[in-house]
């Protein structure tokens, strides 16, 4: 992650801190508990909450607001529960998302699509869990992808 000085926007962190949810961003002391606990970092090694915070603090406005990262967060609040400094990273993500929309990095329709995906994922998970709970013999060897395709075939979500 090379940092170009002329790309630096020293105001960025203060703008984030003024946004609802972004208030505590400057408190981060880089302990890495957020990244170590994040379920997205677990499956995508490039997704790193601590680094995203560093990028904000370093003023990498354009790179952060145009990145895929801010949309990958599942808003699960795990990082927030572990953070010793109350940085409230899930809420910081909300702030970054609304800034990205407002500053034209994505369209409001894109934001809506993300919300639909999140809601769809919740429903899918719910149905999947119900499927294995319903099964009388509680088979344990059935793979998630098979359950998912069953659910998607049988029910309309």
């Amino acid at each position: 992650m090379a940092l170009l000085i002329n790309e630096q926007d020293t105001k960025f962190k203060y703008d984030v801190a003024r946004e609802a949810g972004g208030e505590n961003i400057t408190l981060c002391f880089a302990c890495g508990l957020c990244t170590a606990s994040c379920p997205v970092s677990e499956i995508d090694a490039d997704y790193n909450p601590r680094k995203i915070i560093r990028m904000v603090l370093l003023g990498m406005r354009q790179r952060v607001l145009s990145s895929d990262f801010i949309w990958l967060c599942t808003q699960c609040y795990t990082c927030q529960a572990h953070c010793p400094q109350k940085v409230n990273f899930s809420d910081v993500m909300k702030a970054l998302r609304s800034m990205a929309v407002r500053e034209g990095y994505v369209t409001p329709a894109f934001m809506e699509r993300i919300k639909e995906i999140d809601s769809f994922m919740q429903k899918l998970r719910h149905e999947m869990v119900m499927t294995i709970v319903d099964r009388k013999n509680k088979e344990t060897d059935i793979r998630p992808e098979h359950i998912a395709s069953d659910v998607l075939k049988k029910r309309s979500l």
Binding site: G32, T35, A36, S41, E42, A45, K51
Partner: peptide, 11 residues
Amino acid sequence: VRYENIAQGNV
């Protein structure tokens, strides 16, 4: 233990 190795940037 699970942790982020900050110098390397990975979990």
